[in-house]
Design a protein around this nucleic acid. Structure first.
Lengths: 189, 189
DNA sequence: GTCAATGGAATGAATATTCATTCCGGAACC
DNA sequence: GGTTCCGGAATGAATATTCATTCCATTGAC
C-alpha cells in the first residue's frame, strides 16, 4: 500500500486518459486501477474535470522541466540547443510512457480549462524562443515559429505513437536519424 | 430538407466526432445536428460503433482517392511525386475540414474494428511505396518508411491542427515553405 | 388505404457524484 | 502498558443523471 493515494489516483488516471481519452474513462475505472474507493477520488479532486486539469498541468510542468534541465543557455550554438531539446523529449517520452500521449490527445480539447491551456502555451514559448534565436542568426528557416514547432513536435509525437504501437523499434540509430531529419526540416540551406 | 438522411447523419457525425471524439459525442447530439430523430439513426446504422466505422472507412477512402487522383505514376521523379501528394493532402484538408481531424484522432483507437484498421494500413501503403521507390533511387533517407511517414504526416496533421485553431494563417507561401521543409526532412544529402 | 419512413418519447443500462458508515492511528486517561 | 475515545480518511452502496437503443403513433408517398 502506497502512503500517497493522491499520487496513485493521478498515476492511474494518466494511464487511462492516455489510452482511452477523457470521455472514454470512467471514474470507477480510475478507482479500480488506483486501488481506492470511488468516493476517495472525490476527497482529492472536486470532480472528474478538476482531475484532468490538475493532471494535465502537472504533466506539462514535468515535460517542461525535463526540457530545461541542463539546457545549454550560455552557448549560441542553436544546433546544440536543438539537439539537447530533442534528446530531452526522447528521454521524457521513454520515462513517462503515457504522459506524452496524454498531453498530445488532450491539449486544446474542450475538457481543459483556461489555466491548462495557458500552461501549455507557456510551454510552447520555450520552443518559440529557441527558434527565434536561430532565425536571428540566419540558421533557422524564416517560416513562422509555430509552423516549425508543428513540424518538429508533430513529427516527434507521431513517431512515438508508432513506437508505442510497436510498428517500429526504437533504436539509437533511428533516433539519431530522426533528430537529423527534424533539424533538416527547420534549418536554412 | 435534404433527400438523403444517411448523408446528413454522416456529415453531422463527422463534425462531432472530429471535435469531441467518439466517447464525447452522444447519439442525440448527432441527431440534432443532422436534424433527424434519434431513432432514425438506427434505421441507417446498426449502432454507434457501426456508424463510426462506416464513417472512418469512407473518410479514409476519400482521402486515399484524393491523393491518387492525377498521381504522376509514370514519372520516376520522386520529388515531383512527393509534391503532388503533399498538395493533394492540403487540398483534402481544406475541402474536408473535419475529415483530417477525424481520421487523426480516431486511427488506432479501441473504437475501430479490424476492417477500419486494415483500410488505414492500406492507405499508408501508398506512402510506403513512394518512399521505397525513392530509397531505391538513393534520393530518400534510409530510415524506416514508417518513421518517415510519421515525420511528414505528423508534421502535416499538426500543422493543420494549428491552422484550424487559428494560430497561424494558411498562405500559399507558408504551404510552399512547409512542403520544402518536409521534403528536406526525408531527402538524402 | 397501405405501408415504409420518421421523430421523439420511453426504457433500461451506465455513469458521475454523494453520503452514511466503517476504519484506523494516536491522544487521553487509568 | 493497556484501554477508551476521537477525528479525519476511506469506502462503496445509494442516488441522480446521462446515454444508447427501442418502440410506436404519426406522417406522407404512392
Amino acid at each position: 500500500m502506497t502512503k500517497n493515494k493522491r499520487e496513485d489516483i493521478l498515476e492511474a488516471a494518466l494511464i487511462l486518459f492516455a489510452e482511452r481519452g477523457f470521455d472514454g474513462t470512467t471514474v470507477p475505472m480510475i478507482a479500480e486501477k488506483a486501488k481506492v474507493g470511488a468516493g476517495t477520488i472525490y476527497r482529492y479532486f472536486e470532480n472528474k474535470e478538476f482531475l484532468v486539469n490538475s493532471l494535465f498541468q502537472t504533466t506539462v510542468q514535468q515535460f517542461s522541466n525535463t526540457l530545461k534541465q541542463d539546457f545549454p543557455y550560455t552557448t549560441t550554438d542553436i544546433r546544440e540547443q536543438f539537439r539537447h531539446v530533442f534528446y530531452r523529449m526522447i528521454e521524457f517520452a521513454n520515462n513517462h510512457v503515457h504522459a506524452l500521449q496524454f498531453i498530445d490527445s488532450h491539449s486544446n480539447t474542450y475538457n481543459l480549462d483556461d489555466k491548462s491551456n495557458q500552461m501549455f502555451e507557456e510551454f510552447l514559448d520555450f520552443f518559440r524562443q529557441l527558434l527565434e534565436d536561430g532565425k536571428k542568426q540566419g540558421i533557422i528557416s524564416p517560416l513562422p515559429s509555430d509552423a516549425l514547432i508543428s513540424i518538429v513536435y508533430g513529427a516527434f509525437s507521431h513517431l512515438f505513437k508508432i513506437i508505442r504501437l510497436g510498428v517500429i523499434e526504437e533504436t539509437p540509430s533511428l533516433l539519431e536519424g530522426v533528430e537529423q531529419s527534424c533539424w533538416n526540416a527547420i534549418r536554412v540551406y
